[in-house]
Design a protein around this nucleic acid. Sequence first.
DNA 1: TCAAGGATCCGCT
DNA 2: GCGGATCCTTGAA
Length: 223
Amino acid sequence: MDRALLARPTLEAARALLGARLVRDDATGRRVGRIVELEAYIGAEDRASHARFGPTARNSVMFGPPGIAYVYLVYGMYHCLNVVTEPPGRPAALLIRAIAPIEGIELMRAARLAQGRARRRSLATGQPEAEARRIAALPVARLASGPGLVAAAFGLDRSWTGVDLCDPASPLRLERRPAGEPEPTILAAPRIGIAYAGEPWTRHPWRLLIAGDPAVSVPARGE
DNA sequence: TCAAGGATCCGCT
DNA sequence: GCGGATCCTTGAA
């Protein structure tokens, strides 16, 4: 992925990222997925963005160069993967909300199960065998169809913050949409789970997704 | 509809 | 440097 594409205004960078590949390739094996859903968080003025309080220990990479991973913990148990966008000094990022798995399907299932294991003690009805069966039976399109599920399927946590996703040698990286693949039809919808931000931030159609893709987390209205 | 879980941030001392 | 509210979610009921 060309860093210059991610240095552009975030909504334009999103167009380059939809249909692009997320690749994790290291000692754990090789996992590849097609990015089908994103949310944009744009500037310190965006009341839904982690950057709304200015730079902190957690969000500092958002203020740095584009193409860097920002992974945070949400609700105490899920991790979310973001791609930093726009030039240094301007805090912005794209949250990867859903991916359609292409390679490393069984690796993704194993990672989903491992993450489930970590929080099993909290599950009231957590039967280990039942959980293993449930994940084994999941359709491929549901393996990474949510922001927490993307991180789980790719085995990511906060320690991945700072990884350069534009470096071809990086264990976690972005690759542009293959030349032969048709340009996807993109839908825009309001962002999810940001009611606290208030107007006009709740209204902006900054959730972008590939129309009709079965791996999208929640269908856009009208689909 | 609801609970799970812990980091993070604010506001105050 | 503490107390309390909040949170870019998920899966089972």
